[in-house]
Write a protein that binds this DNA or RNA. Structure first.
Lengths: 237, 237
DNA sequence: ACTGGCTGTCTTGCATGCACGAAAACCGAT
DNA sequence: ATCGGTTTTCGTGCATGCAAGACAGCCAGT
């Protein structure tokens, strides 16, 4: 297998963050983590450094690591990036997807529609993620795939509840439908535009989102310097 | 100052890589680096982990770290990303740049023109970088700014000689001119399109570049597993 | 009571030590 | 001489130890 502990830890911690088990602002204590994972502090530290380099945690020298808390502005900034990245994925996918991939897309999209009708936003959320993943892969651009996924993951603590907006699921699946059509027709330009709109500011999902957010759960860092001020009791799990 | 050694090291190493002092494929020996920087291996390791997380180096467990060597395909992939990111910068900058920033842009652009006429590609290269930086900043989107710079840095080992192409400097500055015009007119759409073209595949800079490249200097990793096969003598400086 | 400084405690940052694994060096056999 | 297997060597991965810095609590002074 040949995977080092620090990598395992990094993945585990990133997962905790993305899944919302470690909330923004939560303190990540080296010793506690070391103990939880049954290692020494060293690999924990290395994992934290990696996550810091990717923007998932913030390490303030001599003050420890906390899960990054993004304020509204920063979230919007990331959405702007997300829109063009996903847009590019769609553009490239329209040109490059293999027949098998197109079939996969169609099938996942159908599943999305089914689950949307079913009505559970959380279940839909999972399939929605798969839908987008299929398009990332369809771009046949690994770097882009990784980059896009990374930004997506950074946002994930904040989008969790997005689909709980009334009617948002229906709208999402409708937008997917338009994207799929463009993709299958090979209309790269339109696919990109539609995807951008789906993710980006132009869709009203975002403004809903913002108004809902203004401090996502309870924590957050309006000023970076305040991020750690609210030192909550190291929950993480 | 409050900056940890591992951060300093990370910046120093990233700089070595971007500046071409550490070539793709070069082995980064922990002990050697530790000695050079007068520390123990620990902060060196942490720095390497950070760089690995950002895609600058690759750490193969138990086999040490090497500067990432991108093959042609991967470079093209990154250019595709670069194009949309810089395009977004331009789009946003067209709308958001302050008068002061617009003045700065104009002035840097003028300087570019002057240096282009002067004829030294390397001097122009530096000013060209500043030009793009002004636009990153003009986007008023910090996340985007960082992200774009990061991708740019990852590519930098490969673009160094790009401008040595005959006539490339003149073309570059001409494209800048078009971008600047769109920016100053506040034409976001056009600014984005032009910038995309400037960076991306549509400009012929890239195909020139590719034909010139096919293994940038001597090293490279067509197959990831081969990356370190060519273990060159740990130059780095 | 509130502010400012001091001290103690605790966590981080870095150094060092040790063991496992991989590559290189070696060696005998064909 | 080349090849397969062994041994040796060396570098990495992780554990541990130690010192400096940050925060909390305490105390004195206003």
């Amino acid at each position: 297998m040949a995977e080092t502990r620090s990598e395992q830890l990094a993945r585990a911690l990133e997962d905790d963050i993305c899944a919302g088990r470690a909330l923004p602002g939560a303190r990540l204590d080296e010793q506690v983590l070391a103990q939880r994972f049954g290692t020494s502090r060293t690999p924990v530290r290395e994992a934290l450094k990696m996550l810091a380099a990717q923007g998932f945690v913030e390490i303030r020298p001599r003050q420890g690591a906390v899960v990054v808390g993004l304020d509204v502005r920063q979230v919007l900034e990331l959405f702007e990036i997300m829109a063009v990245l996903e847009g590019l994925c769609a553009r490239l996918a329209a040109r490059r997807m293999t027949p098998a991939e197109r079939a996969e897309l169609t099938s996942v999209h159908a599943e999305c529609q089914r689950l949307a009708a079913a009505g559970d936003p959380d279940v839909y959320y999972a399939m929605n993620t798969r839908f987008h993943e299929v398009i990332y892969a369809g771009s046949h651009n690994r770097q882009l795939e990784e980059e896009t996924r990374r930004v997506r993951n950074r946002l994930s603590p904040y989008r969790r509840n997005q689909l709980h907006q009334l009617g948002r699921v229906a709208k999402s699946v409708q937008e997917h439908d338009d994207v799929v059509r463009a993709l299958l027709e090979g209309d790269a330009e339109r696919a990109e535009t539609l995807m951008r709109r789906h993710i980006g500011i132009q869709g009203d999902s975002l403004s809903d989102f913002v108004s809902n957010m203004s401090m996502p759960h309870h924590v957050a860092a309006p000023q970076p310097s305040l991020a750690g001020a609210i030192t909550r009791p190291t929950i993480v799990r």
